[in-house]
């Protein structure tokens, strides 16, 4: 873990900061999430560090609680997509034949529909709840993870040690979890960072469109939606989530970049 470049350290620091903020939201937020404490769109002051929102709630508190919701949904969706996508991807690579063909063609089909359009079609009939959002985002994103996991696993699958495990008579589950998974972990972790950012942007977009997290629950996309009318009067409240999302995304990106570089240099600098 030594020789971490400075950019990765900055990234790690801010990523950790955001996740700690999400976990300890109730301790950090000065006011409650739905508590009306002041006038509409008050400028920032000692009482309200970021000012107040469209109905007089403390913006800082809402940003902290909103970060909690956004980060929770994005994390859950990423975990779901990675578990499902990588296991299926490895499975397809190990089994080959018609199972591989069927899974891969189905994934191609789903990927040929734009993600946002597909999500909108599904959310027009499904109830818009947080578990549903996680499910939709996780399943749609799993197709991307599947592609990567399969590509990585196909390369590993032809290695001698996998052949040896086969000849030893190991079962498919052993080959997937004990032979392929440990060797595919690094590229998958780097990809996980990027998928996480994508999930943050995606859930924010859905909430902004009014099809994500429902009020009175706060989340970063929803805060933009609530305060967007202020923009025309020159009140920048709606821009605060932009800052939060951008810094979180850039931090995670820096970490993912570092993980990716580290793994390629481990292969003797060939990658």
């Amino acid at each position: 873990m030594k020789n971490i470049p400075i950019s990765a350290l900055i990234g790690l620091f801010f990523t950790a900061l955001y996740f700690l903020g999400a976990i300890f939201a109730p301790l950090l937020a000065p006011y409650g999430v739905g508590e009306v404490v002041g006038d509409v769109w008050e400028p920032s002051s000692a009482d309200y560090l970021l000012g107040t929102d469209n109905i007089g709630r403390d913006l800082l508190s809402r940003m902290i609680y909103g970060g909690r919701t956004t980060i929770f949904i994005a994390t859950a969706a990423t975990v779901l997509s990675f578990t499902l996508g990588s296991v299926l991807g490895f499975f397809a690579a190990v089994m080959g034949g018609w199972i591989d063909q069927a899974l891969s063609r189905f994934v191609d089909l789903v990927m040929s529909i734009p993600t946002l359009i597909f999500a909108l079609v599904v959310l027009s009939v499904a109830p818009v709840t947080i578990p549903m959002l996680i499910l939709v985002m996780g399943l749609l994103d799993a197709t991307r993870v599947y592609r990567l996991a399969r590509a990585v696993a196909v390369d590993i699958e032809v290695m001698d040690y996998v052949e040896a495990a086969r000849l030893r008579g190991e079962k498919t589950a052993w080959i997937i979890f004990r032979e392929i998974l440990p060797n595919a972990l690094s590229p998958l972790i780097a990809e996980m960072g990027l998928r996480f950012i994508f999930a943050v942007l995606f859930v924010s977009t859905l909430s902004f469109l009014g099809l994500g997290v429902q009020p009175p629950e706060a989340d970063w996309g929803g805060i933009v939606k609530e305060n967007k009318e202020g923009i025309v009067y020159g009140i920048p409240a709606a821009l605060i989530p932009a800052f939060a999302i951008a810094t979180l995304a850039i931090s995670v990106n820096l970490v993912a970049d570092w993980v990716l570089n580290r793994t390629t240099s481990l292969k003797g600098g060939r990658g």
Binding site: S204, T205, F208, V224, A238, L239, I245
Partner: peptide
């Protein structure tokens, strides 16, 4: 690529 497009929209609008 780190900012959702609707937020780029509001930043420019502002």
């Amino acid at each position: 690529i780190s900012i959702p497009e609707f937020l780029i929209g509001y930043v420019l609008m502002y």
